[in-house]
Amino acid sequence: MIASRQPLPLHRSLALGAIGTLAFLGFWAFLARSGLVSPLFLPGPVAVAERFATLTERPFAGGTLPAHVASSLQRFLIGYLLAAAVGVPLGLMMGWSRLLDDIVTPIFDALRFIAPIAWVPFAALWFGTGIGGPILIIFAGAFPPCLINAYRGARYVDARLLEAAEMLGTPGHRMIAEVLLPAALPSIVAGLRISAGLGWQSLVGAELIVASTGVGYMMVQAQGAVSTATVMVGMVAIGLIGVVIDVALRALETRLRRHHG
């Protein structure tokens, strides 16, 4: 029988993470200096760090790195919040109403298997390089987890709570807002965390094609200029922002799970 995995103490977890990071950076630096790969295509960590510092002050592809990051975050927040605003209430209502569930599920099941990047041609045709295209693609990536987790949370609400609310004559909108939503909140937050990751990945894919600003756009322009260090700076920025978003939502999820038992 396999023993259950126990969480490591915080200091040990941080130490192991630091060891892994240093090992990765060391291997990267060794590979860059070995001559096996041209520095033009694989700059070392120091060169990328220097380029990162330069881009925070010197514009590239129409803006500095903070300006491109701000543009990407603006698109992400609009698309992500729109997906949550539509997906969570719709998922709760589908979990509560069998009729609505039967109406929406066939359409949703057909659409959710379409990869967000497949919407790029439509986004380019409908919106060009405006803000609407990336928002559509982010919505396509972030919407399904919001709906699915809200739906599951509503379906697994204790039946006694629903029966008690129905006996008291609770109207439908109050049933969703005051019974289903609080009970399904941990599941909803878990879905929002997954949704944020998919939405952020979808944004970068969208900016590679249908945007004129943003981190993804900066990377495409750097590719054309054969500036590998700039491309890697964009990748680092994308990863760091993704980690910050995930850590914030993970902390919220942990807090809610403790509160709700």
Score class of each variant (00 low, 15 high):
151 Y>I: 08
132 G>N: 03
112 R>D: 02
105 T>W: 01
148 I>G: 06
123 A>I: 03
109 D>M: 07
132 G>D: 01
158 D>P: 09
140 A>F: 08
159 A>E: 13
127 F>L: 12
149 N>Q: 06
128 G>R: 02
119 W>Y: 14
128 G>E: 02
151 Y>N: 08
131 I>E: 13
159 A>Y: 12
109 D>Q: 15
107 I>Q: 10
144 P>S: 07
120 V>A: 13
161 L>S: 00
112 R>W: 00
105 T>V: 09
141 G>Y: 10
161 L>N: 07
110 A>H: 09
154 A>Y: 04
118 A>T: 14
139 F>W: 06
122 F>H: 05
114 I>K: 11
104 V>G: 05
112 R>E: 03
138 I>K: 11
132 G>I: 03
150 A>G: 02
140 A>P: 04
161 L>P: 01
151 Y>A: 11
120 V>D: 02
134 P>R: 05
134 P>A: 02
114 I>M: 14
126 W>R: 12
117 I>S: 12
122 F>V: 15
128 G>Q: 01
158 D>G: 03
147 L>A: 11
138 I>S: 05
114 I>N: 01
120 V>F: 07
104 V>Y: 04
151 Y>C: 12
155 R>K: 14
122 F>I: 15
152 R>E: 14
155 R>E: 10
157 V>P: 02
143 F>Y: 13
133 G>S: 05
127 F>D: 06
158 D>R: 13
161 L>V: 01
143 F>T: 04
